[in-house]
Each structure stands twice: as C-alpha cells, then as structure tokens.
Nucleic acid binder design. Structure first.
Lengths: 188, 188
DNA sequence: CAACTCATGTAAGCTGTTACATGATTCG
DNA sequence: CGAATCATGTAACAGCTTACATGAGTTG
C-alpha cells in the first residue's frame, strides 16, 4: 500500500507539525525530506478532507503582523487511522534513479564522462551522509535510527563505488576489445 | 533533469529491446526494473513521438500465429539524443520509502509491530540481494556493476539494521521512561 | 476450458506538482 | 527597496497507471 497525502499529513501532525505551512516544511527541509515529498497542492486539500472525516480538529489562530493560521490537532480517531495505515503491508521502497539508468550505458560513454558520473554519485552519497550527521535536535528514537542508518549506508555505498570503479573501467575495456577485435590476429 | 518516458524508451531500444511489448518487459522484469518504471500507456505514445522526431525507425513484422509487431530501431540521431540526455545533470536519486516513514513512528508501535516492520525490511533487502545475485546473462559492464553494487549494498544495509535494532529498542525504552516517569521516585 | 502470453493502442482517471493570487512584515 | 518569510488556497497542467478493446495461440 502506498502512503497517500492524507496519511502523510496525519503523520506530520502526529510528529508535531500543526499547520499546512509547517507540514510542507517537514517534507521540504524537515525530518521526512529524504524519503517522502508533499507540496501545498496536496497538503491543504488533504487537511480539509481529514477535518471532514473527523481525523483532525482545527482552530483558527490570529497573529499580529502575520497572516492568520489554522492550527490542526490530530484526534484519537486520527491516531488510530495513522497506526492502521502504518501497519498495513507497505509497498516496497521505490527507488527512481537516473544515475543507475545512465550507468547502465557506461559502455557508451567517453572515459571522462563516466568518471564525472561516478564522481557525482559518490559525492552525492558522501554529502548526504555528512548532511545527515549534522542534523541535531532529533527527538524520536525512530528518527535517530534512520539518520544513523542513512549516514552509514550512504558512506558504505560511496566507498563501494570508489573500491569498484576501477573494475568497471577494466570491464568496459574488455567489452570494447571483444566487440572490436584487433585487425592483426597474430598478437594475443 | 528527470528522465522522461521518451528517453527511457530510447535507452531500452539502445539496450536491444525493440518492440513496445519488449520494452515494457525491460521495465517490468528486465534490467531496469529496480530503478525505473514505465508501462504501456507511456511506452506506445513515446515510441510514436520518437518516430515522428526521427529518433527511431520502425518496420512492421508479420508473424504466423502471433499478432503483428512493430520492430523499432534507434537511429544515429536517437543515439545522440540519448547520450545528450544522460550527460545532462541528473536529478538526485529519489527514494520513496514507506518503511522509513513508518519507522519514524517506531515509538508509537507495540514491540511486536516494530519487530515485524524491521524483519520485513531486513528480509526485503536480503531477498533483493539474492535476486540480484541470481541474475545471469548480463552483457554490459554497467549492468554487471549495478547488479554487484545493488547486491552488496542491500546486504550491508540488512546487516546494519540487524546490528542496530537492539539499540533502537533500548532507545525507545529510554524515550518512554523519560516521558512517563515512574510514580515511585525512590528507586533508580 | 480457464488463464496466460503475445502484441498494439486508447481513454479515463489518479495523484501530484507548479504557478499564481493575496497581503503584511522583516531582513539585507 | 527588493527579496524572502509567513500563511492559505486554487486552477491548470503534467505524467503516469489502470483498465479496457481486440484476438489468435498456447499451457495447465
């Protein structure tokens, strides 16, 4: 089962983000940014739907100088719905990787092009690992676990590529040699 | 830049899949299945668009007993377009993970529920690693690299969770103790 | 004989994003 | 003084998936 925008909003509300604006930040720069996304166009309609279903309550909050906001609170029914959704068999993680697709055409690339692609991918993983390591103020055990996991897995991933990129380059050499045989067959 | 359906079809064609039906298999069960997806509704219109742009050619192929098929061939212009698309700065890998979202609410789960979630996630990684290791008949260096990378990273990921799940459970205990202090303060 | 494979294609629908409208305030 | 931040909301659009139409042949 895919996690839909309503469930994601419910989760964000449960995690302490209590306005539409704040929920967006949770998915843009906040704790969910690395494994889910959600934008205004989905959030506001979702909150209204949740309100109609009684899964959240809402009270307007006037502020001086700033626009009024609507502060949402998850209800008991909402918490049950969230739990139920999270316990349902989850869809397996969906990875959409342009790098991998590109890498599957490594044999079509010039050495410099491939090198740049790998450099970018390695750097991307190390940067993400560093970014995760720098996060602080994380309050829940699950988030702490996920951050450590992300950082360690990203580092291991980057290291794996560094350790195996030479083998890839050799394999490409061999592949090309096999496909474009030497004209002079007397040697090797 | 995201890889659109036309570029993905061009790639599949370059990789040797030469009908709409075969291209779908490449994304459903074939070499691209783990990092991209594409279905009929996108493939057939994309092929027609590519044909109109001169990036592919097409000749009908009659078969006895089976429906006629259209065999597509990528042109030189098509190969250039594919290369150009792959060299463009790629969007960073997008991970949509229901497991991670669920795990961020680990402190709300009963021990058995959390345990099942982690078991499923670990098993999913080991299963994928095994599945990748079982693949044979891979002809290009890039694909061989990706398969080894996927298998090794998945195994390392699964191992990481096994080695750190106890820490998560302890952290949850500590979190709950801090939030629901003992009524009798005289002991520990 | 039901169900699946081969094979192309379209229409409807779902889900989500982008961009805009609105408007005060604060920061550089 | 322009740009960003706070704050809600909608309309238009993009992109992809699902389901269907069609139909012969094969597998269990």
């Amino acid at each position: 089962m895919p996690l839909d925008s309503k469930t994601l909003c419910l989760g964000a509300l449960d995690a302490g983000f209590n306005t539409g604006y704040d929920i967006r930040k949770a998915f843009e720069n906040g704790p969910f940014q690395h494994y889910q996304s959600l934008s205004y166009g989905s959030i506001y309609p979702a909150l209204n739907a949740l309100l109609a279903e009684g899964l959240v309550t809402c009270r307007p909050h006037s502020q001086d100088g700033r626009p009024d906001k609507k502060v949402y609170t998850i209800t008991e029914a909402g918490r049950s719905a969230l739990r139920a959704a999270l316990l349902q068999p989850l869809e397996f993680d969906r990875l959409r990787s342009g790098f991998m697709f590109a890498l599957s055409f490594a044999h079509r690339m010039a050495p410099g092009e491939l090198s740049r692609l790998l450099d970018d991918y390695i750097r991307g993983h190390y940067d993400l690992a560093d970014e995760l390591a720098r996060i602080d103020g994380v309050t829940t055990p699950g988030d702490r676990f996920l951050i450590r996991m992300g950082a360690d897995v990203c580092r291991a991933w980057g290291r794996w590529i560094e350790e195996n990129r030479a083998a890839l380059e050799h394999d490409i050499q061999a592949y090309r040699t096999a496909r474009v045989p030497l004209r002079d067959g007397t040697h090797g």
